[in-house]
């Protein structure tokens, strides 16, 4: 406030009112910010609490777990983790899961990219219905499809291989990938394609050299969702494998035996299934934060 002091009572009143208004506005903004942070913190606590409990149990011995409730490990132990990492039937579960998830991501994205491009750029016979049919594959109830799946893959000789699970997960992952990618591709102006053709690019060269880099973040986001849905699926993965390609989630069921549940190992194995997810989100966080508006407009 570099201007001169007010002289008339009216001016004083006015000035006070203005300052008061500013202060209140500031205070209100601050209180909104704090309320926001408070709510966000509350939600994050809600998200983390069950996970913390799992983590907590994974570091306790079974006697401590069953002996009574402790808010943090009194007797910190790594025995359950050691057990998992030294027993090949345990840790191979993680390797198997990662293998078929990565295979599925590769297959899905490779076939979904051209398909999504076709949906976003061209009109052709049956396009709308084909698109809706793709979505219906997301809703097939898996329970009864299990037996036909088992027999189908058994007949073609893929039972208990990673490829079988990767192919089976394509059922819901390819439609999802097409759906997400189509939205990203539609936001790239068609003039880009036309310019490239005028410059003498062939379609494959244009697609790989120009188009794919433009939708990089779309591919990132799509891979994230592909990873997610393939990693968390259990029913199909369990049905299509027996020993060689058994996913970790199905190995975990071994922790419940006749003498009770081995809580500590179950918790440790559970904690280890969360880690790959964290790595994946870490890689795509910027693509998600950059924003995307999915869907066909």
């Amino acid at each position: 406030m570099s201007d001169s002091l007010p002289t008339t009572p009216q001016a004083v009143r006015q000035r006070v009112a203005v300052q008061d208004y500013r202060r209140r506005r500031k205070a209100r903004a601050a209180s909104i910010t704090w309320r926001r942070r408070g709510l966000m913190t509350a939600y994050i606590v809600f998200v983390l609490l069950p996970i913390y409990w799992l983590l907590n149990m994974s570091f306790q011995s079974n006697t401590e777990i069953l002996g009574g409730l402790t808010l943090w490990p009194q007797d910190f132990t790594l025995e359950h983790y050691t057990k998992i990492f030294t027993d090949s039937t345990w840790y191979m579960g993680y390797v198997n899961s990662m293998t078929y998830v990565l295979m599925n991501m590769a297959i899905s994205i490779v076939v979904a990219l051209p398909a999504a491009y076709a949906f976003s750029r061209f009109q052709f016979i049956g396009d709308k219905h084909l698109f809706f049919w793709l979505l219906t594959n997301l809703m097939a109830p898996p329970a009864v499809f299990l037996l036909p799946y088992f027999q189908l893959y058994y007949t073609v000789g893929l039972f208990d291989t990673h490829v079988a699970v990767a192919l089976a997960h394509c059922l819901f992952n390819i439609p999802l990938a097409v759906w997400i990618l189509e939205g990203f591709m539609s936001s790239v102006p068609k003039e880009v394609d036309e310019m490239a053709y005028i410059d003498g690019y062939s379609f494959p060269k244009f697609f790989v050299k120009i188009f794919l880099p433009m939708i990089r973040s779309g591919i990132g986001v799509t891979l994230f969702f592909l990873f997610m849905f393939s990693w968390v699926e259990l029913l199909l993965a369990r049905t299509l494998t027996s020993t060689n390609a058994q996913p970790i989630a199905s190995i975990m069921t071994r922790t419940s035996t006749a003498s009770g549940i081995d809580w500590g190992t179950l918790a440790a194995a559970g904690v280890l299934t969360i880690l790959p997810g964290i790595v994946v989100v870490y890689f795509v966080r910027n693509h998600i934060a950059k924003g995307f508006a999915l869907g066909r407009t």
């Binding site: 998200v47 996970i51 990873f227 968390v232 989630a249 299934t273 969360i274 997810g277 989100v281």
Partner: peptide, 10 residues
């Protein structure tokens, strides 16, 4: 995002 990436039976 954490809860989304946990296998369903876990």
């Amino acid at each position: 995002t954490l809860p989304l990436l946990i296998p369903w039976n876990v």
